[in-house]
């Protein structure tokens, strides 16, 4: 290991972690407000990647410009899925039923993507995907930096909505105490639709960066969702801040182990960290189980 490699690995970890953080934030937000696990978050990311791919290949629309179309499109898709399927879930066995329903959504979207695009790996290409900045004697891939900045901006927008707007107050109230929020006139149904739609809309950004960094097929969603779930469990279900920290911990831990020791154990060490955290704090790093139990 040469000097600077470890620092680069940490930087890489933070940049990549930022993108996972955004995708996980959407997932945890949906859990918080709707009391459900959205297994389809992984396929939404892949769908976002394919959306960017299609715009680029069919209309020559660049990856970043394309977001102007893909973000609202994913938002509407999210709103539709919430309205069509999630709203029909009752209180009884809600979490397990939500897993089944969103798994079904996953399979349908995956099938449509397979029909349309086939199962070969696709990649998003643009000049900056294979270019890099030269900083402090190291090369920093442009796409990682751009992707991170984009994810950061999206997370900031998410925070602004959550903490500064009327909708945000409603969303957080519904996350805190769905029943009581309804009591004081928060239209939980509408807030649920909007939250689900926002949670899905962020996958347009996540998918674009994911697809630019690594090749994808319609089947890529399963690895992704399992990672996202470990992130939100580590960070604490329903905690947006927890999702951000969880994502950074995941990627940075693996990257450091990969470089400082061996990639063979990197994934295992991360899962060991996850298990230890859950043993010490079963609600995750920032989970507030006692509040939710009210």
């Amino acid at each position: 290991m040469s000097a600077g490699t470890l620092e680069m690995a940490i930087l890489d970890g933070i940049l990549t972690g930022g993108v996972y953080a955004l995708m996980a934030a959407g997932l945890t937000l949906i859990f918080g407000v709707l009391d459900m696990i959205n297994i389809a978050q992984g396929i939404f990311v892949i769908l976002g990647a394919y959306a960017s791919y299609s715009l680029e290949h069919s209309f020559g629309i660049g990856l970043f410009e394309g977001l102007i179309i893909t973000i609202p499109a994913m938002f509407l898709l999210g709103a539709f899925i919430e309205w069509a399927f999630i709203r029909r879930l009752g209180e009884y066995n809600r979490v397990s039923m939500s897993i089944l329903v969103t798994y079904a959504v996953t399979i349908v979207i995956e099938g449509v993507l397979l029909l349309h695009f086939g199962s070969n790996y696709r990649s998003l290409t643009a000049s900056y995907v294979t270019q890099s900045f030269h900083v402090f004697g190291n090369y920093l891939p442009k796409i990682y930096l751009y992707g991170f900045l984009l994810a950061l901006a999206s997370v900031l927008v998410l925070y602004f909505i959550l903490y500064k707007t009327r909708l945000g107050v409603s969303v957080r109230a519904a996350m805190d105490n769905r029943f009581a929020a309804q009591l004081v006139g928060v239209e939980v149904k509408r807030v649920s639709t909007l939250t689900f739609a926002i949670g899905v809309a962020v996958t347009a950004v996540g998918g674009m960066v994911f697809g630019a960094v690594q090749p994808f097929t319609p089947n890529s969603s399963y690895d992704l969702i399992s990672r996202l779930l470990t992130i939100v469990v580590l960070g604490g279900l329903g905690s947006v801040g927890g999702a951000l920290v969880g994502a950074l911990v995941m990627v940075v831990v693996e990257d450091i182990i990969s470089v400082a020791w061996t990639p063979t154990w990197a994934t295992l060490i991360y899962f060991a960290v996850l298990v230890i955290v859950l043993l010490l704090k079963p609600q995750g790093l920032f989970g507030q189980r006692e509040v939710r139990a009210q």
């Binding site: 290991m1 040469s2 600077g4 490699t5 680069m8 690995a9 890489d12 970890g13 990549t16 996972y20 190291n138 090369y139 891939p141 990682y144 690594q214 690895d223 990672r227 995941m250 990627v251 693996e254 990257d255 450091i256 990969s258 470089v259 061996t262 990639p263 063979t264 990197a266 994934t267 295992l268």
Partner: peptide, 21 residues
């Protein structure tokens, strides 16, 4: 000379480490 797991999410540090050699 390293062996990585197929579950690895981020190949950048590995590739960077190879490049650094």
């Amino acid at each position: 000379n390293q062996v990585f797991q197929s579950e690895t999410t981020d190949f950048t540090p590995l590739a960077d480490a190879i490049a650094a050699t």
